[in-house]
Design a protein around this nucleic acid. Structure first.
Lengths: 144, 144
DNA sequence: TCTAATACTTCAGTAACTGAAACAACCATG
DNA sequence: CATGGTTGTTTCAGTTACTGAAGTATTAGA
């Protein structure tokens, strides 16, 4: 009964996968909380964070957020209605609209970043050496 | 200009936080993909996974999924319409409805679990010793 | 028993999302 | 330089997820 098509996954790996699941859940929870403290939804917060680095065409936003462009339209609409984002014409291509964070949008994005406690607390228990090790392991995990 | 209210976060920590963000993104992507391969949304997949372990009252589902009970009603409705979940009366309390995975639901849940490649691939590059170290670090990170 | 709390559903209302269709602007080819 | 295909954005219809308020049972407590 222990012989299946799927190779049996060893308990250690299962445990690590489970831990990663917990990290993911915690991360999301904190992110959503931080967003809603600023009266933003998760999707709005993600988009605004992207724009806080540089203005982007709608199409690139859709690529980065892995969704359809028609979806981005709505999210930007709502952020624009609140004065956090504005649409500018792209001088190089008149088809393109660049979404850009306004001054207020930048302020909110910064505040959002700072209230993301995940950056400080969960790593607080780790020493510098441990962080280096963790960085190495995660890097190898992510770059196949 | 480098003196702010927020203590400056060192580059190493930022890097690790960024890596965690990438892990979270990758995890989510794979989870959604696996779900949609089974014609399930993410929320439906999460709920069905919970029920594949044991039947649960609607209220407990809402707690586990961190959402309102009225929301669970809809998700269970849709899963029930597809024959993956059924509602049973709780013999002990006639107010309660237990949601339970059907045989077909269990089958889908198992298949979903197996197609979650995240369990194998990203850890594939790590040796046993490294997994032990990773487990330790993640555990310390999560249990403050 | 009468009342308050609990479990679930129903009903607006909003946001996120998809896919198709429309429109404008770009671009390449003949 | 015309024209036809491609690209970037929006609009629209339709689905799901979600909240919060009200409504209906049922249970439990004074």
């Amino acid at each position: 009964m222990a012989t299946h098509k799927t190779p049996p996954i060893d308990p250690l790996t299962l445990e690590v996968v489970d831990l990663i699941g917990t990290v993911v859940a915690r991360y999301h929870e904190e992110y959503e909380d931080a967003a809603s403290e600023h009266a933003l939804t998760g999707a709005q917060a993600r988009l605004l964070s992207l724009l806080s680095l540089e203005p982007l065409p709608m199409r690139r936003l859709a690529q980065k957020l892995k969704c359809e462009p028609s979806n981005v339209t709505g999210i930007v609409d709502r952020l624009e209605a609140r004065g956090l984002v504005e649409r500018r014409p792209d001088p190089a291509d008149r088809r393109v609209k660049l979404a850009a964070a306004t001054a207020e949008g930048l302020r909110v994005a910064r505040s959002l970043r700072e209230s993301l406690r995940f950056a400080r607390e969960p790593l607080a228990g780790l020493s510098r050496e441990e962080r280096v090790v963790l960085r190495g392991l995660l890097t190898r995990m992510l770059s196949p």
